[in-house]
């Protein structure tokens, strides 16, 4: 179960890092290219630490690359939120903010994990995420309270993404077991803090928190949206084309 949980933990930053990696060299300013690359690198680092750990836990000799490049969609456990397309800059930053606001609560609590490796990963990730969430919140606010066009785009992004936020706080048997063992906080417990932060930023961004729609779900169990397949096809192509090769 720990293996399953750690994989879930690592897959979201992996997918998000991949998404951001594709945006470098087309950001609105060069300064933003540098910023996006920074977030992508941090997330990739978190994913690598977690996937390596998962591979060790599994004990079948799979390393971070085996796990990243040779699993199919149904074996990925990332949140549906992070596989939604980059869209425009408003969607990229809103997706980032909604995820960062969750991740900061998660990593903060995980620092107290009964598992030493997770606690260590969390110790590093919490600092990175503290910076990411400030950055993404700043952008959501500026786009929401900027021009009519930026506000319009932000509203459109919110309509696309909100339905995927419910999944952040859904729990199942794996989560229950982890909470019982003191390994991880129950995700549902993170919701109030997340909401407080989201509401505060949305106020400054002149965004209304939408009515809670039916939360789309399934990512943790490998039931994904159509987007993940394309993302993985691009990410995995080289090792799959050259079986047995080392890079």
């Amino acid at each position: 179960m720990l293996f399953e949980y750690v994989l879930r933990l690592g897959d979201s930053p992996l997918v998000l890092a991949q998404q951001l990696g594709g945006l470098i060299a087309q950001a609105p300013t060069m300064e933003e290219d540098v910023a996006l690359a920074n977030v992508s690198l941090d997330l990739l680092g978190q994913a690598r630490a977690l996937l390596s750990f998962a591979g060790e836990l599994e004990g079948r000799g799979r390393d971070e690359n085996d796990l990243a490049y040779f699993r199919e969609s149904h074996a990925f456990h990332n949140l549906l939120l992070v596989e939604q397309p980059n869209g425009d800059f408003a969607q990229t930053q809103l997706r980032q903010f909604l995820y960062d606001a969750f991740a900061i609560e998660l990593w903060t609590q995980l620092q107290r994990s009964s598992d030493a490796t997770l606690a260590a990963v969390a110790g590093k990730a919490v600092k990175e995420t503290a910076y990411h969430v400030r950055r993404s919140a700043d952008w959501v606010i500026r786009l929401g309270d900027g021009t009519e066009e930026s506000a319009r785009r932000l509203h459109a992004a919110l309509a696309n993404l909100w339905m995927f936020t419910g999944e952040l706080f859904l729990t199942d048997a794996v989560d229950d077991a982890m909470a019982e063992q003191g390994v991880a906080p129950l995700a549902s417990r993170l919701e109030p803090a997340w909401r407080t932060r989201v509401e505060s930023v949305f106020t400054d961004a002149r965004l209304d928190v939408p009515e809670t729609a039916w939360p789309q779900r399934g990512g943790k169990l490998g039931r994904h949206t159509e987007h993940l397949g394309h993302l993985l096809a691009e990410m995995q192509v080289l090792p799959r084309t050259h079986p047995g090769a080392r890079w």
Binding site: E31, Y131, D138
Partner: peptide, 19 residues
């Protein structure tokens, strides 16, 4: 560097000059 306000300038400076 260029930035619209001081907050963004600080963030950008951190990303560009302290990697």
């Amino acid at each position: 560097l260029h930035a619209p306000d001081a907050t963004m300038a600080l963030h950008n400076a951190r990303d560009v000059y302290t990697r």
